[in-house]
Design a protein around this nucleic acid. Structure first.
Lengths: 129, 129
DNA sequence: TAAACATATGAACATTTATTCATCTATATT
DNA sequence: AATATAGATGAATAAATGTTCATATGTTTA
C-alpha cells in the first residue's frame, strides 16, 4: 500500500464506518493534542525527572542540584528553564542564589503514580545506586 | 564557570551540604529514572496521543485508525509498535485485520488527568475541529 | 569600582526520533 | 495456486532535543 493522506478513503477498505465516524466526531482539537503531548514531553527526560524528584524533598538552589545530580551547571540550568516554562517549578532569588521548588500539586501526584506503575510492572527496586 | 563533572565540589561554593547529602541518599536508581522518563516519552508524541485517545472509545483495527486520524498506514503502524512495546495497547487478529485496544487501566486515568490539568491551566476547549 | 561568584543563555554539535518510501509477511478470496 | 488485501518493518531523511562550550547578566564583597 502507498496511502497519501488525500486518498486514503478510496484505497483502504478495512474500515468500520461507524467507528471512524465516531472517533472523528469525538476527536480533540489539534492544539489540545499538542499541549498534552508537550506536557508529557517535559517528563520524558531523565535529567528533568532527576531534578523534579530531588525537588520533591524541598527547595534547592542551582548549585545544590549541580552537585547532587553530578552534572554541569549549564545542563542543569537549561533543563530548569524547560521546567520553568512549563510551570512545573517556581523560583525565588536569595542574594546570588536562585532557589527552585515544585510549582504544581499535580507534579507530585504524577511522579508518584508513574513510579508505582513502573515499579509494579517491572518489579524494579525503588532506591538504587 | 566551567564545571567538569569531576571537580564540581572544589569549584562550586553555593552548596547546602545537608540538602545535597539528603538528595544523594534518597536518589533513585539510574535504571528507574530512565524507565520513568521512557514511560513519559511514550506519551510525548501527538500521534500516539491521538491513537490512545481514539482507543479510549473502544477497540479499532489499523485501517480505522489510518482513516480516522488521516495519516499513512506506515506512520500509524510504527507508532502502534511503540505503544505495543510499552504495553499500552494489546491486539487480537481477526482474519486479515489486526484489532487494537488499550492494555492498561492506568492509561485511561493518566490521559484524563493530564487533559484536566492542561485544560484547567490553559482554559483550552475540550473538543475541537 | 573592581573582582568574584551564582546562574542564565546563545550557538554548535551529536543523538534521538517521527515520517516516508519501498518492500515483506500473512491471511483471504478467486 | 495466484492474486489481492491488511498490516509490519527496515532504511533513509528531516526535524527535534540535550549537552557542551563560551560568554553574558546580575548580585555581593573587597
Amino acid at each position: 500500500m502507498n496511502n497519501k493522506v488525500t486518498d486514503i478513503c478510496e484505497i483502504c477498505t478495512c474500515v468500520h464506518k461507524d467507528v471512524v465516524e465516531r472517533v472523528k466526531n469525538e476527536s480533540l482539537s489539534d492544539e489540545l493534542i499538542y499541549d498534552i503531548a508537550d506536557f508529557f514531553k517535559v517528563f520524558g527526560d531523565s535529567t528533568r525527572i532527576k531534578i523534579l524528584y530531588a525537588l520533591l524533598g524541598g527547595e534547592m538552589c542551582v548549585g545544590d542540584l549541580v552537585e547532587a545530580l553530578e552534572m554541569t551547571q549549564s545542563a542543569i540550568s537549561h533543563q530548569l528553564r524547560v521546567l520553568r516554562q512549563n510551570d512545573l517549578v517556581k523560583f525565588r532569588k536569595e542574594g546570588k542564589a536562585v532557589i527552585y521548588s515544585l510549582d504544581d500539586e499535580h507534579v507530585n501526584l504524577l511522579l508518584q503514580q508513574s513510579m508505582c506503575h513502573i515499579i509494579h510492572k517491572k518489579g524494579a527496586d525503588f532506591y538504587g545506586k
